[in-house]
Nucleic acid binder design. Structure first.
Lengths: 235, 235
DNA sequence: GCCGCACTGTGCGATACCGAACAGACCGCC
DNA sequence: GGCGGTCTGTTCGGTATCGCACAGTGCGGC
């Protein structure tokens, strides 16, 4: 498919006033996001940042023993590589493509310069970071207080929000890694949702026939995150 | 005790170059942090931010049913109210004094103006926020992957890092709330650490006789957070 | 001094979750 | 077409944690 990609498909870039956008446009390079591609590994230098237009990138932490757990999801609502703005030149975390698509890449120093202008771009990015912080903290709280089934529901909805269809192409192992459990744990959660008629799952494919039913079933953490994104970020 | 308080006891303020410090100094007002004082409630307008010099403030999230869980700890290493920099004028989270002490309060708009200058203060605060993000994400990961006992150990060490003594004055209920468990859960964790000879607990008092022994027992999450703070923030 | 109340410590049954082991399905390579 | 490896789905027992119920303790108000 020869899709008409545009940087404006990314909400942060879309919200930029013309002047700033014109400055960045020549530097933006489209980059394919292949499923499973590790955008950043632990400790990598951050030479580029990525503004997804389609597809989803997961921010996660990998323990020394190899056990992973997801921290946040980034889609066309945000940008991957925020540490660039913050003064760290590398990332202590990992970012991996969780759902294939495309992104616009930008050299870190170009972006850092734009950020330091202190204009609307900085303003926008800071608001995004605050929304991202909410997502992270809510992940922490949800991990602590809620059942696996609820966390899975939240995660499915957050993923769906960043994708055009109601079908998620994802293996059992991917889900397990994101939730920070074994394959059996993921399976158990999927089964429960399946039995409740909220999803249809088969071999690496999750279909959510009725979003609203799933939203009614999820814990409040999902709404907290969504509300905060809506509040802080323009559409 | 008539202690000689100085804003420089806060590491962020201490790291400011003279020019910026002189600008802020006349605006800083000392504020006592009484144990349990809710610095911010959910949704409060952020009219002031607080730079602790002594004492510890907990950032936490309270669910609709009242169940709380801690997200991060702030001591003299940081500042409470970062949403001010980010563009949100209120906070979706709660902040409460977890260990009594003092802080310097500053009007939000003064701080926002200083931040917008884009100088060393902005630079410093952004690095702090990145460190804080690490603490939050590590809380998320630890909540997901590690045992209550390990989380308690991590939390005790993070608290100790922000206090001068090796004794923590804290009730069972406070610990339970921070960890997001019931009183029995907190008790169980304390007992285990006690049996292992790592702490001495009695009626609202936790003594850590040998930090190193506790550090050897804690999960890697503690070191990740500490390393990141050391890397990003000057001493 | 008396009493109420919030905090502290204990016990136990129910359950969600973990961990390892195993069988079947799909895919690529030869 | 045969073969091996990876991914998928299932089973089962052990265990950490939860949820609830109850007794002891200290501190306040009256």
């Amino acid at each position: 498919m020869l899709s008409p990609h545009s940087p404006r498909q990314n909400q942060l870039l879309a919200a930029l006033p013309a002047a700033a956008y014109e400055r960045l446009l020549p530097e933006l390079q489209i980059a394919p996001l292949a499923l499973g591609w590790p955008v950043y590994e632990d400790g990598d230098p951050l030479d580029k940042v990525y503004f997804p237009t389609t597809g989803v990138i997961s921010l996660l932490h990998v323990m020394k023993d190899g056990a992973p757990a997801e921290i946040a999801l980034v889609g066309n609502d945000g940008v991957v590589g925020i540490a660039v703005f913050m003064g760290g030149s590398n990332t202590p975390r990992k970012a991996v493509v969780q759902n294939a698509g495309h992104a616009y890449a930008l050299k870190s120093d170009v972006l850092r310069d734009e950020f330091r202008l202190g204009g609307p771009f900085q303003h926008l990015v800071l608001r995004y970071i605050q929304a991202l912080i909410t997502q992270m903290t809510q992940t922490a709280v949800c991990n602590r207080l809620h059942s696996l089934e609820q966390q899975l529901s939240r995660w499915l909805l957050l993923s769906l929000d960043r994708l055009p269809s109601n079908t998620l192409q994802m293996t059992q192992k991917l889900i397990a890694d994101m939730l920070g459990v074994g394959p059996e744990g993921a399976m158990e959660g999927l089964e429960k949702l399946q039995r409740a008629g909220l999803i249809e799952y088969a071999r690496g494919r999750v279909v959510v026939p009725d979003r609203q039913k799933l939203e009614a079933h999820v814990c409040e953490c999902y709404a907290v995150v969504k509300t905060e994104f809506d509040r802080l970020l323009p559409h």
